[in-house]
Structures are given as structure tokens and as C-alpha cells.
């Protein structure tokens, strides 16, 4: 079967919220942040390329490997808040 490697997903900031719940981080059962849910109407939902269960490896080129949950969540939140870019680049892995 086609083992696809990590995928780069560009999420435009098309809504007021990113609209994902993330679970996981260093020193927990889920070592890398995983998408736990996607809220309707959020930027992630409107983008349509993110799926529940996908693992976020990088945000705008910054690796989340080894980061505690709160630090990883802060990186994602700040990437969405910043006015420098009107999108966020997620490097995503499909671990099932």
C-alpha cells in the first residue's frame, strides 16, 4: 500500500478561529500533538485538508518534536494570531 510520507498542508486564516482541538505532547501517551477534533466553520474545517487523527509534526517549519503539550499548543496559537502571514503551514503525518 502507498505509505505516504508527511504532507504539507497550508491552512488559510479564513475564519476567526483555527477550530481544532489538539491532544498530546512530550512525556505523554501521545508524544506528538494529534488533531482530536475539527470544529465546523473554523479555518481548518474550511481548508478541508486536515483530518481528525492526523499528527502535527511542524508548524511553519518549526518542529514540535520533544515539545510539551502547552508549548506546542502555544506555537500553534501564535502562528494563528500573528499578522505576518495569512496562513499556517502544517507538516502533517497520517499515523493510523
Amino acid at each position: 500500500s502507498g505509505q505516504s510520507g508527511p504532507t504539507l498542508v497550508r491552512v488559510s486564516k479564513s475564519a476567526n478561529t483555527l477550530g481544532i482541538a489538539v491532544e498530546g505532547g512530550a512525556n505523554t501517551r501521545q508524544p506528538l500533538p494529534r488533531i482530536a477534533s475539527i470544529q465546523k466553520g473554523g479555518s481548518a474545517h474550511l481548508c478541508g485538508q486536515l483530518r481528525v487523527g492526523q499528527v502535527i509534526l511542524e508548524v511553519n517549519g518549526m518542529s514540535l518534536k520533544g515539545m510539551e503539550h502547552r508549548d506546542a499548543a502555544r506555537v500553534i496559537a501564535e502562528a494563528f494570531k500573528t499578522k505576518e502571514k495569512d496562513y499556517i503551514d502544517f507538516l502533517i503525518a497520517d499515523f493510523n
Binding site: 478561529t17 477550530g19 482541538a21 512525556n27 505523554t28 501517551r29 503539550h69 500553534i76
Partner: peptide, 15 residues
């Protein structure tokens, strides 16, 4: 006896 370390579940953050 080797003590089995069980990792804690993670928090969930809404973004």
C-alpha cells in the same frame, strides 16, 4: 523489580 513507568494521558487544547 523494574518499575513500569506509565505515561500520563495528555491534555486537550482547543485552538
Amino acid at each position: 523489580r523494574e518499575k513500569r513507568l506509565t505515561l500520563p494521558p495528555s491534555e486537550i487544547t482547543l485552538l
